[in-house]
């Protein structure tokens, strides 16, 4: 995972539109996209399919409550 992810406060949402035949295919594509971007803790927040394809909002959590947050690590105590 790229170090830029460490500055993400909690999650990365990706919104897109897949040209696909049904919601099931849209879901698979969305999860593959998230994996492709290196977002492992991923899920689909919202998906809506109509004829031309699926409108999707997928989410990958970078920091969940209780984690050690990269954005808090912005430097050492010696700075």
């Amino acid at each position: 995972m790229g170090e830029w992810f460490e500055s993400v406060l909690d999650a990365v949402d990706i919104e897109t539109f897949f040209a696909c035949k049904d919601e099931k295919e849209g879901r698979v594509l969305a999860m593959q996209l998230m994996k492709g971007f290196g977002l492992k803790d991923a899920d689909i927040v919202f998906i809506e399919h109509e004829g031309p394809g699926a409108r999707v909002r997928a989410r990958g959590y970078i920091h969940r409550a209780g984690d050690r947050y990269g954005w808090l690590e912005g430097g050492t105590d010696d700075e």
Partner: peptide, 14 residues
């Protein structure tokens, strides 16, 4: 805007 999503915590952009 993600309050109805039950799969994870609320995210700041929402």
């Amino acid at each position: 805007s993600d309050e109805a999503y039950s799969g994870g915590p609320i995210a700041v952009p929402s």
